[in-house]
Write a protein that binds this DNA or RNA. Structure first.
Lengths: 196, 196
DNA sequence: ACATGCGGAGAACGTGCGTTCTCCGCTCCG
DNA sequence: CGGAGCGGAGAACGCACGTTCTCCGCATGT
């Protein structure tokens, strides 16, 4: 087996298992069995479990954000692009193996113990927030709104995971639409010289 | 040592350690040392670690919700009572040992493995949501708003934990205020016969 | 054909931890 | 004063798991 395909298979198995059952619950042996990559090879590629965990979170980060961007790019209207974020969440929540946000879960499990995991969670959420800022900016909406959208999205992920229903995505979308309208109204008022 | 005080001390230590460092990271031995309750006694009171975990989450649930209600009860205006929820979150986030929501963290750590933990997280969030529904109702606001508030609150908890800053509470508060205004405006419009 | 070295399977090792057991002192009752 | 039982300290046990080691087959180069 090729080295790079071994790495891929190992990461595929790690992602499926770590995401589905938690990190501490899954042993290296199980990853060996699920991936077909021998333990020796696993430890050549990732000298310790921590590094496999780190690689899993890093790879998933770029994949997750690319999937989001792909969905958003199907819209052209700047405001629709903002709201598409929540449509994407809805589709994600409906996937049968959805089990919440990998970084929120990892943070809950290891954030207090592993500085690396905490940093990766922070980095992922910072990147997500930066993306929301760009979307809001492109729609001519103030920066505050991006933070509001972030809270709605994070809340939707958590709530959908714990209750096991996709509804929070639609709820977050409707709240986001109201906030966008409120901000847009305020902006329109400001440009018209209206006093608040 | 009395039986009920032993139980209290055990739960005190369990709460401090489980909340601060995660459940799987903390061993029964450490709880013994931190609480001063002997291992024998611990296992008399809680026949297995799961049950100690369960008792920890249950006790913290009522304490957490009572603290919230106490803060809310300092306000009399129904709308202020709704917003006070986020002021309370801000105060909580500023506590030095704040490390996110115990139930979100526990769910991330054990939700996939332990049905009991998943159920307790669901129960806690359902109770929190029901409280928000009551607050919204008392303020004459529609039921949808309570779900929006829930998402903002959950998002604030997660974001404050991962970024290690209390700001999300204020952001959630301002978003909540905008949503309240939007809903109140809509209600006023409806009562005035305005067409949307 | 034969040596050489890489890779796989899985045993082995060490440690941590949930749970139980042993031993001992203390207290309380006759 | 004696013994009987409860509680504490912590050793012991069994298991799971991260990590390493051993052994063996196989491919490759001369």
């Amino acid at each position: 087996m090729d080295g790079t395909t071994a790495r891929q298979q190992a990461l595929d198995a790690a992602e499926r298992l770590f995401y589905g059952r938690g990190i501490q619950t899954v042993g290296m042996d199980e990853i060996r069995t699920a991936s077909g990559v021998s333990l020796k090879r696993l430890y050549q590629l990732f000298p310790a479990k921590d590094q496999l965990v780190q690689a899993y979170l890093e790879r998933r980060d770029v994949a997750w954000r690319r999937r989001l961007a792909d969905r958003v790019d199907r819209e052209s209207d700047p405001v629709e692009r903002v709201l598409a974020v929540f449509d994407h969440l809805g589709a994600w929540f409906r996937e049968p193996d959805f089990r919440g946000c990998a970084w929120i879960n990892s943070y809950g499990e290891l954030g207090a113990t592993s500085a690396a995991v905490a940093a990766l969670a922070r980095a992922h959420k910072a990147a997500f927030r930066a993306y929301l800022v760009r979307l809001a900016d492109a729609a001519g909406l103030p920066g505050d709104l991006a933070d509001h959208l972030l809270l709605l999205a994070e809340g939707a992920m958590v709530t959908a995971a714990i209750f096991g229903t996709p509804e929070p995505a639609a709820q977050a979308r409707s709240a986001a639409a109201l906030l966008v309208a409120a901000h847009a109204g305020a902006a329109a008022g400001r440009t018209a010289g209206e006093r608040v």
